[in-house]
Simulated assay, not measured.
Amino acid sequence: MQSWALAAAGVIGAGVAVIHGVLTQRLMVRPVLAGDGLSRPIRRLVPALLQFSTYNWLLGGVALVAVAAAPVGPQARLAVGLLVGSSYLFAVVGNCWATRGRHPGWALYAVSLILIAYGLAEIPA
């Protein structure tokens, strides 16, 4: 089976998520929280909202590695691949559109999508 492709997609996705999380914290969360105009509930909510995609992509990467390594059925592999793939597709479209292609994240998640598709290609219909 093409489990290596799912595992590689997961490693890429999780790695990009970690880098994304660090940069988001430094470049977005800290500056927003440094301002004085936010209420206390908003100050608590901002980090969670800005880091939600990081959490989602990291968890997706871990799920891909897990499903590649575990003896699971084809339906489980398909479900994980489709769920994580849809999240990574959102990252590709959003990052490419917002940065006009000048952000490496969209390209790395596109590679992950190709690997997910390859890893799922063997699953019977």
Score class of each variant (00 low, 15 high):
W57P: 00
V84G: 03
V18T: 02
L33F: 04
V22A: 14
P47I: 10
I42E: 15
R40M: 09
L33A: 06
A76H: 07
L23I: 04
V29Y: 01
G35W: 02
V18G: 01
G61E: 07
V29D: 01
M28D: 10
G15F: 07
R40F: 03
P41R: 12
Q25M: 11
P47K: 08
H20F: 10
V65A: 15
L58K: 02
L49S: 08
V72K: 11
I42H: 10
R77P: 00
V29I: 15
L27K: 13
S86L: 15
P74I: 08
P71D: 15
P31A: 10
A34R: 11
A79S: 06
N56V: 08
A69W: 11
P41G: 10
F52T: 12
A34D: 11
L59C: 05
Q51L: 15
G85V: 01
M28R: 13
V67Q: 11
S87R: 02
I42L: 15
S39T: 14
A69G: 11
V62A: 12
P47S: 07
A68I: 01
D36K: 12
L58A: 14
I42V: 14
L58D: 02
N56A: 13
R30W: 08
L58F: 15
T24V: 12
M28G: 00
L38D: 02
A63R: 10
L78H: 09
P31V: 07
A34I: 01
T24A: 12
L38Q: 07
G21Q: 10
R26T: 01
V29T: 05
G21P: 02
Q25C: 00
Y55W: 13
R43Y: 03
V67L: 09
G35V: 00
G37I: 03
V62I: 15
R40H: 07
V46H: 04
V62C: 05
G15A: 06
Q75W: 12
R40T: 09
P71N: 15
R30F: 05
A48R: 14
R26P: 00
G81C: 07
L27R: 14
G21M: 08
A70P: 01
L78K: 11
P31F: 11
V67G: 07
A34S: 13
S39K: 09
G61T: 08
N56H: 07
H20G: 03
V72S: 08
G15P: 05
A66K: 05
P71T: 14
R44Y: 05
